[in-house]
């Protein structure tokens, strides 16, 4: 339990003495045909929390949540524990999972146009969620769907019920997906890169919508993105993943002000500046190692500017240098924290 990532309940509910987290993932691993792509994930999600998950492509952001919901193909072997309100979800019976999915935990995906069934009317697709999780039937489905479409700001809500997905734009389809997710009145919405397939103005609108809805409904939000900027604006707490492990977790403002892990510092340096600052973007050098061929020590060591000899020997554990923050870096704990702060201010300057 010692290095369980981010029991951030302390600042979400300052008064409450450690309430039970809504969702707990412990020691979760995922193997595809003998190749380990998730190497023991620990994280918690508090009620109503907005949790951001960032990391480069292939770091295991999607696989973490697909595995938690039992949505990976049979070629995947999942182990560990995922508990929702204390109840184990891994290996749960299909009927129980079907009640959780879409009902208590909803998920939306990167490309809304391909996540909607092309041959079924939108009304039918949202209707089956309403019928399945809340027993809504008949003409009530149409009324409830219209209410949800209005809620997510879908223009011309009444007419969309009979439309097909190809008749809507990408942004409109993502609103439909969000409406479908809300239809189950979930406690958690997992949004897996919900804006990557959309153009910039629509992206901002969808993120605003997610923030508004979270405020109004009180549901927790897990926002997956490869863009630290997007996540830090929307989320309370951020988890940084690299090659199937959590390398850092901290409150959003803290991660911006003083990133602990060199990988997080690299992600920040690669971020475009807010206002036309002059300094160049510095992409992280090197490439993400292949999961079949990970280095023996820290997976980031080969790309790390602060690499020490020990880094190449043992995988660093996720340690807690200060309250609410965790980082899996030997160099950061060995070297004085001042150094990383100094480095970081030069990045943000």
């Amino acid at each position: 339990m010692g290095n369980l990532a981010g029991c951030a309940t302390g600042y979400v509910f300052p008064a409450a003495p450690a309430p039970q987290p809504l969702l707990v993932i412990e020691g979760m691993t995922v193997d595809f045909n003998g190749v380990r792509v998730l190497r023991g994930i620990d994280l918690t999600l508090a009620r109503g929390e907005a949790l951001g998950i960032v990391g480069e492509s292939g770091s295991g952001k999607s696989v973490t949540w697909l595995a938690a919901l039992g949505l990976l193909p049979r070629s995947a072997t999942v182990s560990g524990s995922v508990r929702l309100d204390g109840e184990e979800m891994l290996g749960a019976a299909a009927s129980r999972l079907d009640r959780i999915r879409g009902g208590r935990v909803a998920m939306i995906f990167q490309d809304p146009s391909s996540a909607l069934n092309p041959v079924l009317r939108i009304g039918r697709q949202i209707g089956e969620v309403l019928a399945r999780h809340h027993g809504v039937s008949g003409s009530n489905i149409r009324a409830e769907a219209k209410r949800l479409f209005d809620l997510v700001g879908l223009p011309d809500a009444a007419r969309r019920f009979d439309a097909y997905p190809h008749e809507l734009s990408g942004g409109q389809n993502q609103r439909v997906m969000i409406a479908m997710a809300l239809a189950g009145k979930p406690d958690v919405l997992v949004a897996d890169e919900p804006t990557t397939a959309l153009d910039a103005t629509i992206q901002a609108q969808i993120l605003d919508l997610l923030t508004t809805i979270r405020r109004e409904t009180g549901m927790a939000l897990v926002l997956i993105s490869h863009d630290l900027g997007v996540v830090s604006e929307t989320c309370d707490r951020i988890i940084v993943m690299y090659t199937g492990s959590v390398v850092e977790t901290a409150p959003a403002d803290a991660i911006f002000a003083s990133p602990r892990h060199p990988y997080t510092q690299g992600l920040l340096a690669a971020l475009p500046p807010f206002e036309g600052a002059l300094h160049r973007l510095v992409p992280i050098e090197g490439q993400v190692p292949d999961p079949t061929n990970l280095p023996p020590g820290c997976a980031f060591a080969p790309r790390c500017p602060k690499r020490l000899a020990v880094c190449e020997e043992a995988v660093p554990p996720l340690a807690q240098p200060e309250n609410g923050r965790f980082s899996a870096c030997i160099a950061a704990t060995v070297q004085p924290a001042r150094l990383s702060l100094k480095l970081n201010t030069s990045v943000l300057a």
Binding site: L66, L69, L71, A94, S95, L97, D98, R99, I100, R101, G102, G103, A106, M107, F109, D111, S114, A115, L116, N117, P118, E128, V129, R132, H133, M177, M180, G184
Partner: peptide
């Protein structure tokens, strides 16, 4: 196709 996984994610048996 992604819409099959999305349908499962909605809790459809």
């Amino acid at each position: 196709q992604p819409y099959i996984r999305a349908a499962s994610a909605k809790g459809i048996p």
